[in-house]
């Protein structure tokens, strides 16, 4: 495993140490050590089944929902344990939001999709606060201009790319620190993809982002750091530029140049 030395300043937002994940008897992730730095985009790349989505889903405890899934090792968010049994996962998920592969708006209006989280967490005491929060979130997600006249319409009536941006708006409405994105563009056309990528770049100024992608060019375009995983192990983690011009590990090189298998 090769990593760049991390300078003492700033502190990492997310830390994983000896993180392993098991599905029943089968181990899917092996002893991953990883530091995710604040306000950077970190991309997880690797072949299908390499454990990148499983690793991503550790950070907001989505794997807890799978009965046979078991996680060992430690995870810290801003220095606080998030792996233990006492962690309030609902609270955790408000700090670590997630955007999924397929846009999955609730069967509610555009407005209610975004307002759902803030209502749940009591973030907006008055109607006008909520209005403002919904507008700000939609603006940050780069979709306000397109939906401002139809926030009462169902979220599912939007186009695929708009739905995905709506889901991003919904995720950031609860003011998380971290956004996890699991192949957020894989169901979108190139133009909608470019819009999301531009959005990711803008969101980077306020959020720490981890993105899982099958599209290596996308990883190269949007991320500052790239982690290459293979067969459940973190093979290489470095500056994205370094990974795509001169990776240290032969298997990274083989994968990104299309020589795998």
């Amino acid at each position: 495993m090769v990593t760049t030395s991390v300078s003492s300043n700033p502190q990492p937002t997310l830390v994983a140490r000896e993180l392993s994940v098991f599905y029943g008897e089968k181990q899917a992730v092996f002893d991953v050590d990883l530091d995710i730095m604040p306000r950077e985009v970190t991309a997880f790349i690797g072949p299908s089944g390499c454990g990148k989505s499983t690793l991503l889903r550790c950070f907001n405890r989505m794997n807890d929902l799978i009965e046979i899934c078991r996680t060992t090792g430690s995870m810290l968010l801003d220095g606080h344990d998030i792996a233990g049994p006492d962690v309030d996962v609902v609270q955790l998920r408000s700090r670590i939001g997630m955007v999924f592969q397929k846009p999955n708006p609730f069967p509610k209006s555009v407005y209610d999709n975004v307002a759902y989280g803030p209502r749940l967490h009591g973030l907006a005491p008055s109607r006008s606060d909520l209005d403002e929060l919904v507008e700000t979130s939609l603006r940050r997600a780069g979709i306000w201009e397109e939906v401002k006249d139809r926030v009462d319409q169902p979220g599912t009536s939007l186009s695929g790319g708009q739905q995905q941006r709506l889901c991003i708006a919904r995720a950031i409405a609860v003011r998380p620190d971290v956004l996890l994105m699991d192949e957020p563009c894989s169901a979108l056309d190139p133009i909608a993809t470019a819009t999301i990528e531009e959005l990711i770049d803008e969101l980077r100024s306020e959020y720490t982002i981890i993105i899982v992608t099958h599209n290596m060019q996308q990883a190269a375009r949007v991320s500052q750091k790239t982690a290459f995983l293979n067969l459940g192990r973190l093979i290489e983690f470095d500056e994205t530029k370094k990974i795509f011009t001169n990776p240290s590990e032969q298997s990274t090189q083989d994968y990104i140049t299309g020589r795998f298998g």
Binding site: A220, F244, T245, I256, T257
Partner: peptide
């Protein structure tokens, strides 16, 4: 083909 790494070099 958007070459990377050794292919790019």
């Amino acid at each position: 083909r958007q070459p990377v790494a050794q292919d790019l070099r």
